[in-house]
C-alpha cells in the first residue's frame, strides 16, 4: 500500500514534541536551543521528501545562524543588569502568563480544525496526479537538460537561470536586510565620532 520510509514516524513525533516543548518552556535560553533542534528535525524530514537543497539550507540557516543570532540577542536583553556582567539562567525566564491560556488555545484549536477540514479536499501525499505535479507542465525537468547543456541539478537551474529575476530580487532583499540591521545596531567607531566633531567645528 505504502512504501513509506519508516524513519519518518520517529522524526515527525519528535518534531511535534519539540514544537510543544518550545511552546511550554518558559526559559528562553532553552527555547532557543529547542528551536535549533526543531530546525534540524525539519531538515531531516525535508531530506526524506527528496529536497536535499532545502534540507541543506534549513540545517545551515535554521539550526546554525538563526540560533546564533537569537542567543546573541538574548545575551543583550537580560532582565536586569548585573554589576559583574555575569548572567544567570533566571535572567532569561519569560514572565509567567497573567491570564489563562484558554482563549489562545480555543482560537488555535478552531483554526486547526478548519484547516484539517480543508485537507479532506487535498490530493493524497505523493499523488502523481496532484495539481502541483500537472501544472506547470513538469516536462521542464526534461527540457532543462538541453537548455542548460546538461546541468544535472534542476533546482539550481531553475533558481539561477529560469527564475533568475526572482533570485536577483531576493539577493537584493538580503542586501537590504543586512544594511537595515547595520543601521539599527551599529555604533559609531571613535574615529567616526572624531571626524564628525571636526566637521562640526569647521562648520
Amino acid at each position: 500500500m505504502l512504501n513509506m520510509n519508516l524513519i519518518v514516524i520517529p522524526i515527525l513525533l519528535l518534531l511535534a514534541a519539540t514544537a510543544v516543548t518550545v511552546a511550554r518552556i518558559r526559559n528562553l535560553w532553552a527555547a532557543v536551543m529547542f528551536t535549533g533542534i526543531y530546525s534540524f528535525l525539519g531538515a531531516s524530514w525535508m531530506l526524506i521528501l527528496d529536497a536535499p537543497d532545502v534540507a541543506f539550507t534549513e540545517a545551515a540557516v535554521g539550526a546554525g545562524i538563526s540560533t546564533i543570532l537569537m542567543l546573541a540577542t538574548l545575551s543583550l536583553t537580560p532582565k536586569k543588569r548585573h554589576r559583574d556582567g555575569h548572567l544567570q539562567s533566571d535572567d532569561f525566564e519569560e514572565k509567567p502568563l497573567k491570564h489563562s491560556p484558554f482563549w489562545p488555545l480555543l482560537v488555535v484549536t478552531i483554526t486547526g480544525c478548519a484547516l484539517v477540514y480543508g485537507t479532506y479536499d487535498m490530493p493524497a501525499f505523493g499523488d502523481p496526479n496532484a495539481p502541483i505535479q500537472v501544472y506547470p507542465d513538469p516536462s521542464f525537468v526534461a527540457k532543462s537538460q538541453p537548455d542548460m547543456h546538461g546541468l544535472p541539478n534542476v533546482v539550481t537551474a531553475v533558481l539561477a537561470s529560469y527564475r533568475g529575476y526572482d533570485t536577483l530580487g531576493e539577493t537584493a532583499v538580503i542586501f537590504t536586510a543586512g544594511i537595515a540591521v547595520l543601521l539599527i545596531l551599529r555604533k559609531n567607531t571613535p574615529e567616526d565620532d572624531r571626524r564628525a566633531n571636526e566637521q562640526e567645528a569647521v562648520s
Binding site: P52, G126, P128, S144
Partner: peptide
C-alpha cells in the same frame, strides 16, 4: 513529493 520519485538531480 511524488510517490516513487527521487531528488531532482538528474
Amino acid at each position: 513529493k511524488v510517490q516513487g520519485g527521487t531528488a531532482p538531480i538528474l
